[in-house]
Design a protein around this nucleic acid. Structure first.
Length: 483
RNA sequence: GGCGCCAUGGACUAAUUGGUUAUGUCGUCGCCCUCUCAAGGCGAAGAUUACGGGUUCGAUCCCCGUUGGCGCUACCA
């Protein structure tokens, strides 16, 4: 059996989308699981929408996810690496032109000068009259060609789809799928500006690049017979196809911006770990068994198979992703979490001048964290000069009347050792001596020190804050009025 | 309009060749743990497997139909 070769072929029209990332992941996993090669090809034939910035973002996001390619664009986003390049369709125009000539020589492609509006009008009319809207273009006669060309016009080229018969193929996830040729229009393969369309360029490239398995979203299922007709017409070797289900928003509509974050890059800036996103995405449309939920990348590679890919679309659930991210955050080494969290704190305006202290801070919040981006907000009181009292904390603070003993506690703390266990011993003893419930005392102290009702463990928090700030904050809290 | 694909609790899903009290995870709720919140542990609720017909001793599973969703029907990909 020849080695497996899969590809991811995005068009660079923006950031890497969650759906695209999942498609790339499945292709990558399939190749890696079978020791094959993964190819990245940039489908930049839509010059109006594509951009170099998009290519750069794509490369960045793919790398962040850990999806590496054996052939495709170099790290700089310009050069191509691999023997079957270039891997940018915009640089392969002469190749497509050659295949167009081949089609022309077989009388399987013909020129047309119709406008888009004319084509649409024809289709509308066909639907209205109850005719099959399969469209046969108006083929320009040699005379029309000469005349229009003389006027400086250039034709678009349509592919002559077989008039009858069926095109069927064995899809690796959907099984046997068949389409009647007579229902297919003669589609445009080369636009009047000389640039090939998706179906033409993709078919030519997949074959020329030796792709053995085309894994893509099932929105392409209906495009497949067109491409198969092209492979046959051009005598090109055909890959196997696996159409994976789409990812939907909560309203079951195609995932889009109004559903919130859809760009992979946004998940990075929101503080998701790439392995968590990968794990979550892998489970959208694929499962290993009825029990396993958490998979390392290595496990995914060893366990992935197309046979276990499902057929129906899946709704993207941010809440479950967050849970999963929390699982990974909890298990990750503190050093790594701290390093990844640092930019989030800096973006919030919190400078980290003591790395060792910061590590302790992260350690105190790591277990409960769901995303890195949520951390600075929760930890803000560690960085601010004074405390801003939340209404809930205020209520807690005054719950047992004005805590008059606060001053006494402050002076005891002023003389105390400031490690967690000493602090706990001191506070517990103080509570007992004052006849206050430990629980209540903790609540008051938490409010006084942080202005919040939720913080890391009180003694961790105190040790992290340090003696001077703790004492100062307790004294400041004495001035609080219960109004 | 035509063609295609799909259909298991709110979400993601499992169910060896048709035979299970229909699996697990997220979420929800409760209890435990506990200085708060999480995390963790335990437990519960939630599914006439979209609907209607078949085939069969027996259908989540096979067949047909209906409905619904999505996709394609572009000189987008």
């Amino acid at each position: 059996m020849p080695p497996i070769r899969t590809r991811f072929a995005p068009s660079p029209t923006g950031f890497l989308h969650i759906g695209g990332a999942r498609t790339a992941l499945f292709s990558w996993l399939y190749a890696r699981s079978l020791g094959g090669a993964f190819v990245l090809r940039i489908e930049d034939t839509d010059t109006a929408r594509g951009s170099q910035e998009s290519v750069d973002m794509l490369i960045r996001d793919l790398k962040w996810l850990g999806l590496d390619w054996d052939e495709g664009p170099a790290a700089d986003g310009h050069a191509s690496i691999g023997p079957l390049g270039p891997y940018f369709q915009s640089q392969r125009l002469e190749i497509y032109a050659g295949y167009l000539e081949l089609l022309k020589s077989k009388n399987l492609a013909y020129p047309t000068f119709e406008s888009k509006a004319e084509v649409e009008a024809e289709k509308e009319a066909a639907i209205k009259e109850g005719r099959t809207p399969a469209y046969v273009g108006h083929e320009a006669s040699p005379a029309e060609m000469a005349e229009k060309t003389a006027q400086g016009l250039k034709p678009a080229w349509r592919f002559r789809v077989p008039e009858d018969g069926v095109t069927e193929f064995e899809d690796l996830v959907h099984g046997k799928t068949r389409f009647e040729n007579k229902l297919m229009s003669d589609f445009v393969i080369v636009r009047s500006d000389g640039v090939p369309t998706y179906n033409f360029a993709a078919a030519v490239d997949d074959s020329l690049m030796g792709i053995t398995h085309v894994i893509r979203g099932d929105d392409h299922l209906s495009n497949t017979p067109r491409q198969i007709c092209l492979y046959r017409a051009l005598d090109l070797v055909m890959p196997a196809f696996a159409h994976i289900p789409m990812i939907l928003g909560p309203d079951k509509q195609r995932l889009s911006k109004r559903h919130g974050a859809t760009a992979v890059g946004e998940y990075e800036t929101q503080g998701f770990l790439p392995e968590a996103l990968v794990n979550y995405l892998a489970l959208l449309g694929w499962s290993f068994d009825d029990k396993t939920t958490l998979f390392s990348i290595e496990e995914l590679v060893s366990k992935f198979s197309l046979e276990r890919v499902g057929k129906h679309a899946a709704v993207f659930d941010t809440v479950k992703l967050e849970w999963m991210n929390g699982q990974y955050l909890k298990k990750a080494p503190v050093e790594r979490v701290a390093e990844l969290a640092k930019p989030h704190f800096e973006r919030a305006g919190f400078l980290i001048d003591d790395p060792a202290w910061f590590l302790r801070l992260i350690k105190s919040v790591q277990e409960k964290a769901r995303t890195l981006a949520a951390l600075p907000l929760e930890c803000a009181f560690f960085f601010s000069e004074s405390v801003s009292l939340s209404p809930e904390a205020k209520e807690k603070f005054f719950a047992a009347g004005h805590p008059a003993w606060l001053e006494a506690l402050a002076s005891q703390l002023d003389a105390a050792a400031f490690d967690e266990s000493s602090l706990e011993v001191l506070v517990r003893a103080f509570a007992e001596a004052q006849g206050i419930k430990f629980k209540d005392l903790v609540g008051v102290l938490r409010a006084a020190l942080s202005g919040q009702t939720v913080t890391p463990g009180l003694f961790e928090t105190m040790a992290l804050l340090g003696k001077p700030r703790c004492v100062a904050r307790l004294k400041a809290a004495l001035e609080w009025k219960n109004d």
